[in-house]
Design a protein around this nucleic acid. Structure first.
Lengths: 122, 122
DNA sequence: TCGCTCCCCTAGTTGTTCTAGGGGAACAGT
DNA sequence: ACTGTTCCCCTAGAACAACTAGGGGAGCGA
């Protein structure tokens, strides 16, 4: 039996996670992924194949600055930092997230029909 | 000034919205879209170009049954209904949604550095 | 008859995420 | 000195969901 594991990231939320993580302070890619994993209690797993393209996208759009530095464990690392635009985007995305989840939760909390109601075509 | 409107749907949640809406009772595509819009207080807008492919996907995977009937306004309509598999999937997706949003909210509620901390590369 | 609402559909584009690789350099252990 | 592990970067292509931009048809009210 092949069990399908659920996605470990909600599509469309990666940018928000990255921006928020960088709002805590500058960080490099690997560190961002680790931090997201940590603060989500090991629920969110960011694949490198998603992470780096996302970082490049955000940088290209002017939301991030980057600089090569040496990491705390003495390794070559590219540190990212929020720009003003990035901070603006973070705010917008955060608002949007709240709005959407509220809306979705409304739909999800609608009363469900009893079992009988789904048995026939009524 | 071209104002970019935020997405009116969170990617990856459409299936869940559809399944939940059908748990209330059988319905046709157009009606499903209308109901999602209603119960979300006009925040969620399901485009027909997203809706119908999604319905076909779900039906193909055995989550939905369908039947041509006449709608309440006397029009030809394809009614969909949850199958047992669909109900199972709804439960799983609902759980998954709760888990992911909880995780994301944890990340979002992490303490943010003051403005000074993002000014330099420290 | 005209316009509007209801209702269905799909081809092709776009965008994001993941898979599946590719590196290199530091460090700990043997 | 070598080996394995961790840390750190990257990309091409596949997969897939959502949207754009169309295409219908049929009922209904004016």
């Amino acid at each position: 039996m092949a069990r399908k594991k659920p996605p470990e990231l909600l599509p469309g939320t990666l940018d928000l996670m990255i921006l928020k993580t960088l709002a805590v302070g500058p960080n490099h890619g690997y560190g961002i992924a680790r931090r997201i994993k940590q603060t989500s209690d090991d629920v969110l797993h960011v694949e490198e194949g998603s992470l780096y393209p996302a970082l490049h996208r955000l940088a290209k759009r002017g939301c991030l600055d980057s600089e090569w530095r040496s990491s705390e464990s003495n390794r070559r690392a590219k540190y990212y930092r929020l720009t003003r635009k990035g901070r603006t985007k973070l705010k917008a995305q955060t608002r949007n997230w709240a709005q959407l989840t509220t809306a979705i939760d409304k739909v999800l909390s609608a009363r469900t029909a009893g079992k009988a109601a789904t048995k026939g075509w009524a």
